[in-house]
Design a protein around this nucleic acid. Structure first.
Length: 995
RNA sequence: CGGGGCAUAGCUCAACUGGAAGAGCAGCCGCCUUAUAAGCGGUAUUGGCGCCAGAUUAGCGCAAGGUUCUGGGUUCGAAUCCCAGUGCCCCGACCA
C-alpha cells in the first residue's frame, strides 16, 4: 500500500470528459464545418473513395432558377441528400449532380417588369441576356442556400438548361423527335392581344368586368331526328346554343353536350328545340318559347322527348347561317352553368367556381376549335379542323362571308343583327362578366388558334436511331425494360403506358396516377411564343412558306448552339445556320425565315436525362431514382418519359419517388400571403440546418409534411436527445484507445452484450429503412434506441461501473467497448440525416493511437449487424426489463411515501416463482446494478403465485461517499473510512496504476 | 366538376396478409445533483356517486358508457375490406 496521502475521492471518479459540447450552436458550427468540407474537397474525396463501385444514380429534377428557396425546395433537396448519402454509405458510387431550370416564362415576365416599356424596342438577344443574368443570379443564391443545408454534390458543375451544351442537346433532342416522326405542325388557340398583335401567357392577362352580348341561337338538326326518339320523326328540330362571343360563331364547327345530362326536345309552334332538361324553364323563359294560354301566360312546355346527351353523339346540325355542318359531340366539360360556355373564359379555377353557381346557357355548347381551349380539345378528339378565320390584327379573313375584314369586336353587334334578320336568334341581352384583358395595353383579348409545333401522342414512331459516339447498343438500354414484342414502332402514348408498368413507383399509387395521365393526355404542344428558351430550329421558305424540319439541319444548328448558345438563333442569319446554298425543295428558293417560337420549358427539363446522364462520365442512363413532388407527374416525370421514349424507347428512371407538400399545422398549404409559411432561412438562423434536416427525416414524406413552431420544437427536443446520447458515449470514452482497450466479446459483461445485441437489431432495421427510402423509420428507430435502450436503460445502468471502477478495470473497459461501438455505429447511421452532427461525433470518437480515422463520417459505410446475436438472450432481457419496470414503480411508491429519495437508498426484496424465480436467481448478482439500488434479495415465493412480488426497504449500512451506494461495510478501510468495500478495491487499483 | 392522395392521443409515428388500440416526445407530479440549460421515475378519456379533505389543488373507492374523421355495410371479429359523406393536399394553365 502506498505511503503517500490518500487520494482525493472526488478526483477518483471517472466523470465524462469530451470536446463534444452539450450545446450544439448549430448556426455557427455548421458554417465552420461546411468550410472544412469544402477545404477537404469532401465530395471529391467520396467520389475517389467509391470509384469503381457499383453506381447509384439519383437524377436531380432542376428547380426553377427564379426565386429564393422555400421550405418545399429545401425539403426536396434534403430528401435527395438523404438518398445520395445513404446509398453512398451502402457502398455505392452515388454522385450527385444538381441542376437548374433556367428558361421559361416566369423569368421572362420578371425581366419584362424590370425592363418596362424599354423591352418593346429591345432585340431578343438583349432580353435573353437579361433573362440569363437573372437566372444566374437566382441560381447562385439557390446554390448557396442548398449548400448551407449540408447537401453534398457537384456544386461547382451543376447542369444548367441554359448552358451552351444543354441548349445544343435540347435542339438535338428535338431532331430526334422529328426523326422518329412524332413532330407535326398544327394550330392551337392561345390568348391573343389584337392590339399588340402578340400571344399572351395566362400570367399576362388580367381579368376585368366586361359587357358582352350574350346570344341564344338555333342550329337546325340535319340528321334524322327519329334516331334520337321516334316522337321526333319528321319534325323540324333545332339545337339551342348560347354564347357571349358572337364573333366566334362564324368559326363554329360543332356543338358539345354532356353525355350524362338529360336533354329535352320541346315544341314551339311547328318547331322543336333541344336544350338541357334542367335549363328548360330558364331558356324558354328568356327566349319566350312555348304555348300561351288565353291570358298570355306560358303553359307547361310540351316535351316530346327526353334523352341523355350521349344520344346526340356525332349527329349533325347545319350552321345557323353558313352552308356547313356543325357536329354534335359529347364532352365532360359541358356544364349547366353559363360562364364555362364562354369560349374565352379560360381562367380554370374561376370558371370552375362559376360553373356551380351561374345559370345561363342551354347545356349545348357552341364549339369553335380555333377559339377556345375546351373547344380545341374536344375538336381534336372529334377530328375537327382547328379553324380560325381571324388574322393577327383581329380581323375576319376574306373567307368569312358577310363579315370579311371586320374587327371581331366591331363585328359583334353586326352579327347579332344579322342573326336577328335571319331569324336564328332567339334572344340577346347584355352580359356582365369577368373577361381577360391584356396586361400591357388593357384591351380585351381574344382566344385565337395560331400555328404551333406538336409532338404526337398517337403516331407510331420510326425506329430508334442510336447515334451515340460511345457506341452504346440500343438493346442494352431496352432489354431490361421492355420485351421483344415492343420492337415494333409504338406511339408515345403506347410506349408510355408500357413503360409505366415496369417502373417502380413509390408510393405505389404513382403508377395509377401516371397511367391516367397518359390515357387522356392530348398531343404535346411544344411551341411557345416567347424568347427565353431554346428556339425551335425550323426554317420556312420565304417564298413558298414550306417548313423545313430536317434532323440533319437541326443537328447542324445544334453544333452552332454548342459554340455560341441558342442566342445564335437570334444573332445569326438563317443562311448562316443552314448548309451553304441550301435551296427549298418545293420551289427552289434560297431565302429562309427562322421560326420564332421557342420550345416549351418542359421540353428543356425533360431533356435532362439525355443532356446530363448520358454526357457526364460519372453518370449513367437510365437513372436509378427520380424524386420530386406530386406536381411533377404532369411535369418532369412526364416530359422525361417522353424524352426517354423518343431516344431509347424506354423510361429514363427505374424508380420514381414522390414526396408530399409542405403544409402548416392544420394541414393547409403554405402561402406567403396567408402568413403560415415557414421560411427555411429563419429556421437555419435560429436552430440550424440540422433541425430542418431532422424535420425532413421525422415525418413520412410520402404524405404532406406538416411544419409549425410546435413541430420544430419537438424536432429540436429530439435533436438534443440524440446529441446528448452521443455526448454521453463520447464523454465516457475519454482516454479509451480502441486498439489497446477493446474487450473481446466473450470477456464482456452480460449487460454490455445485451446492449450490443440491441444495437444489432437497430442496425438491421435502420439499414432496411434506408434501403426502402423510409427515413422516418430511420429516425424513429434511432430516436427510440437513444431514449429507451440507451438513455433510460443501458447508460443509467453502466454509470456506476464507468464512474467508480478503476479506469483500466476490465469491467469498465467492457462498457467502454460497447459505448465505442454504439457511438461509432450511431455516427454512421445518423450521417445521411444529421450530416453535420454525425461528422462532429465522428471527429470526437477516440482514435486508436496508431490508427487513422477517415477524414469524415461521410466517407464511411453503414455498420454491419453481428449475425451471432441470440434472440433468446434478447427476450430474456426483455423479461428482466419488464420486472425492472415493476421495481421502478415500487420504488416510486416508496419515494412518494418519503421512504427513499434516490433509488440507491433502497434495498429490494423480490419474490417470484417458477420461471421468473429461476431467471432472477440466475441474474441475482447483476440485479442491484440493473435496478440501480444498493441491494437486491431474490426470494422464492410459494408455488402458484404468479408474477413477482416486490418489497422496498431502506438499504442497510451507510452511504458510501464515493459511489453513493449503501453498504454495511463502509468504514472498514482505515485509509478510506468513508468508502465502501467496492470503492476500496477501486482505489487500491487506482493507486497501483498511478505508479 | 374530373384524376390521384391523406385522415390513429397535443406532436411525430407504430399496429405482418382483418384477431384484445400502441411507442416516443410534449404536458402534469416527483426524485437526483457523478450526461447538469443534463439525467431518472411515475402519470393519459368523460361525466356520476361515495370516502378523505374541506378555501383550492390533489388522493382513494364504486358503478356506467365511449374509442382509430363521420355514417352505413361485409364478418364470429374491422384502424385494417366495401359503399357514401366531410376536411385537407396535388394535378387538370405558355406557373415550375
Amino acid at each position: 500500500m502506498s505511503t503517500e496521502t490518500p487520494l482525493d475521492l472526488k478526483k477518483t471518479i471517472n466523470l465524462p470528459k469530451t470536446a463534444f459540447s452539450q450545446k450544439a450552436n448549430l448556426a455557427q458550427s455548421e458554417v465552420a464545418r461546411l468550410k472544412k468540407w469544402s477545404e477537404l474537397r469532401l465530395y471529391e474525396m467520396i467520389r475517389q473513395d467509391r470509384s469503381g463501385a457499383e453506381k447509384f444514380i439519383l437524377h436531380d429534377g432542376p428547380p426553377y432558377a427564379n426565386a429564393d428557396i422555400h421550405l418545399g425546395t429545401a425539403m426536396n433537396k434534403i430528401l435527395k441528400d438523404f438518398i445520395v448519402k445513404s446509398r453512398s454509405m451502402m457502398g455505392y458510387d452515388a454522385p450527385y449532380v444538381p441542376g437548374y431550370d433556367c428558361h421559361g416564362l416566369p423569368i421572362e415576365l420578371y425581366v419584362d417588369r424590370k425592363l418596362g416599356a424599354k423591352k418593346a424596342n429591345m432585340p431578343a438577344v438583349s432580353i435573353r441576356r437579361a433573362c440569363r443574368e437573372h437566372a444566374s443570379e437566382a441560381l447562385k443564391r439557390q446554390t448557396r442556400d442548398f449548400q448551407r443545408l449540408g447537401i453534398l454534390g457537384e456544386w461547382d458543375h451543376p447542369y444548367l438548361t441554359m448552358s451552351n451544351h444543354y441548349e445544343a442537346e435540347t435542339a438535338r433532342l428535338f431532331a430526334r423527335f422529328v426523326e422518329r416522326g412524332y413532330v407535326y405542325k398544327g394550330a392551337r388557340p392561345v390568348y391573343w392581344c389584337i392590339h399588340d398583335q402578340t400571344a399572351l401567357a395566362e400570367a399576362e392577362v388580367e381579368y376585368h368586368q366586361h359587357t358582352s352580348p350574350s346570344v341564344y341561337v338555333k342550329f337546325p338538326l340535319s340528321s334524322d331526328p327519329a334516331s334520337i326518339d321516334p316522337a321526333l320523326a319528321g319534325r323540324k328540330v333545332f339545337v339551342l346554343i348560347w354564347t357571349t362571343t358572337p364573333w366566334t360563331l362564324p368559326a363554329n364547327l360543332g356543338i358539345a353536350v354532356h353525355p350524362d345530362f338529360e336533354y329535352v326536345a320541346f315544341e314551339h309552334g311547328d318547331e322543336v328545340y333541344i336544350v338541357a332538361g334542367e335549363l328548360l324553364d330558364s331558356v324558354a323563359g328568356k327566349c319566350d318559347l312555348g304555348e300561351r294560354d288565353a291570358s298570355g301566360d306560358l303553359v307547361a312546355h310540351k316535351v316530346l322527348a327526353r334523352f341523355l346527351g350521349i344520344k346526340l353523339d356525332r349527329l349533325e346540325c347545319r350552321h345557323a347561317w353558313l352552308d356547313r355542318p356543325s357536329l354534335l359531340m359529347v364532352g365532360e366539360h359541358v356544364t349547366l352553368g353559363g360562364e364555362a360556355d364562354a369560349e374565352v373564359e379560360l381562367d380554370v379555377r374561376e370558371a370552375r367556381e362559376k360553373r356551380a353557381t351561374s345559370k345561363a346557357g342551354t347545356g349545348c355548347v357552341h364549339t369553335a376549335p380555333g377559339h377556345g381551349h375546351d373547344d380545341f380539345v374536344i375538336g381534336k378528339r372529334y377530328g375537327l379542323e382547328i379553324y380560325c378565320p381571324v388574322d393577327n390584327a383581329g380581323h375576319f379573313t376574306a373567307e368569312v362571308e358577310h363579315f370579311a375584314g371586320q374587327s371581331v369586336f366591331e363585328a359583334n353587334p353586326r352579327i347579332v343583327e344579322f342573326m336577328r334578320e335571319r331569324g336564328v336568334l332567339l334572344f340577346t341581352e347584355n352580359y356582365e362578366h369577368r373577361y381577360p384583358h391584356c396586361w400591357r395595353c388593357k384591351n380585351p383579348v381574344i382566344f385565337r388558334a395560331t400555328p404551333q409545333w406538336f409532338i404526337s401522342m398517337d403516331r407510331a414512331g420510326g425506329p430508334v436511331v442510336e447515334r451515340d459516339e460511345d457506341g452504346r447498343d440500343r438493346t442494352n438500354f431496352t432489354e431490361n425494360f421492355s420485351d421483344a414484342t415492343t420492337a415494333s414502332p409504338a406511339s408515345l402514348r403506347e410506349g408510355a403506358l408500357r413503360e409505366i408498368e415496369s417502373v417502380e413507383w413509390l408510393p405505389a399509387w404513382g403508377r395509377e396516377r401516371m397511367r391516367n395521365m397518359f390515357k387522356g393526355r392530348p398531343d404535346w404542344c411544344v411551341s411557345r411564343q416567347r424568347v427565353w428558351g431554346v428556339s425551335i430550329p425550323v426554317f420556312y421558305c420565304a417564298k413558298c412558306t414550306e417548313a423545313v424540319a430536317d434532323p440533319n439541319i437541326i443537328n447542324n444548328v445544334a453544333d452552332v448552339f454548342e459554340r455560341e448558345s441558342a442566342d445564335a438563333w437570334y444573332t445569326r442569319e438563317a443562311r448562316e445556320l443552314l448548309p451553304e446554298g441550301y435551296k427549298c425543295k418545293g420551289c427552289g428558293a434560297d431565302e429562309w425565315i427562322k421560326e420564332t417560337d421557342i420550345l416549351d420549358v418542359w421540353f428543356d427539363s425533360g431533356a435532362s436525362s439525355i443532356a446530363v446522364l448520358e454526357h457526364r462520365p460519372e453518370l449513367r442512363w437510365p437513372a436509378d431514382v427520380y424524386i420530386e413532388g406530386g406536381d411533377q407527374f404532369r411535369g418532369w416525370f412526364n416530359s422525361s418519359l417522353m424524352v426517354g421514349l423518343a431516344v431509347h424507347d424506354s423510361a429514363p428512371y427505374k424508380t420514381v419517388l414522390t414526396h408530399g407538400w409542405t403544409v402548416d399545422a392544420q394541414g393547409k398549404a403554405m402561402h406567403k400571403s396567408t402568413g403560415n409559411a415557414v421560411p427555411p432561412d429563419e429556421v437555419i438562423k435560429e436552430s440550424g440546418a440540422e433541425i430542418l434536416r431532422l424535420w425532413c427525416a421525422s415525418s413520412n414524406y410520402f404524405d404532406d409534411m406538416r411544419c409549425s413552431a410546435e413541430i420544430l420544437q419537438r424536432v429540436t427536443d429530439g435533436y438534443r436527445k440524440l446529441r446528448n446520447t452521443a455526448r454521453f458515449a463520447l464523454g465516457n470514452l475519454h482516454a479509451f484507445d480502441p486498439a489497446r482497450d477493446l474487450v473481446k466479446k466473450d470477456d464482456m459483461e452480460e449487460v454490455d452484450r445485451w446492449a450490443q445485441a440491441e444495437l444489432d437489431v437497430v442496425i438491421e432495421k435502420v439499414g432496411a429503412a434506408y434501403k426502402a427510402y423510409e427515413f422516418h423509420t430511420v429516425y424513429h428507430t434511432l430516436y427510440n434506441f437513444a431514449t429507451v435502450t440507451l438513455s433510460a436503460r443501458y447508460f443509467d445502468i453502466i454509470k456506476d461501473r464507468l464512474y467508480t471502477f478503476a479506469p483500466r478495470n476490465p469491467a469498465r473497459r467492457s462498457a467502454q467497448t460497447t459505448l465505442y461501438k454504439i457511438a461509432d455505429s450511431l455516427a454512421l447511421m445518423l450521417a445521411p440525416i444529421l450530416a453535420f452532427t454525425a461528422d462532429e461525433i465522428w471527429e470526437n470518437l477516440p482514435l486508436a493511437e496508431s490508427g487513422q480515422r477517415a477524414a469524415s463520417v461521410h466517407l464511411g459505410v453503414f455498420p454491419k449487424a453481428n449475425q451471432q446475436t441470440d434472440p433468446a438472450v434478447l427476450s430474456e432481457w426483455e423479461r428482466i426489463f419488464e420486472i425492472r419496470e415493476d421495481v421502478l414503480r415500487a420504488l416510486e411508491e416508496s419515494r412518494t411515501a418519503k421512504l427513499i429519495g434516490s433509488s440507491l437508498e433502497a434495498r429490494v426484496e423480490i419474490s417470484a416463482a417458477g420461471g421468473a424465480y429461476e431467471l432472477l436467481e440466475r441474474y441475482k448478482d447483476q440485479l442491484r446494478y440493473i435496478f440501480i439500488v444498493s441491494e437486491v434479495e431474490v426470494l422464492s415465493s410459494e408455488e402458484g403465485a404468479s408474477g413477482v412480488l416486490i418489497k422496498i426497504r431502506p438499504a442497510a449500512g451507510e452511504k458510501c461517499e464515493r459511489c453513493w451506494n449503501y453498504s454495511t461495510r463502509v468504514g472498514e478501510s482505515a485509509r478510506y473510512p468513508s468508502v465502501c468495500e467496492r470503492c476500496v478495491t477501486a482505489l487500491e487499483e487506482i493507486e497501483r496504476e498511478a505508479v
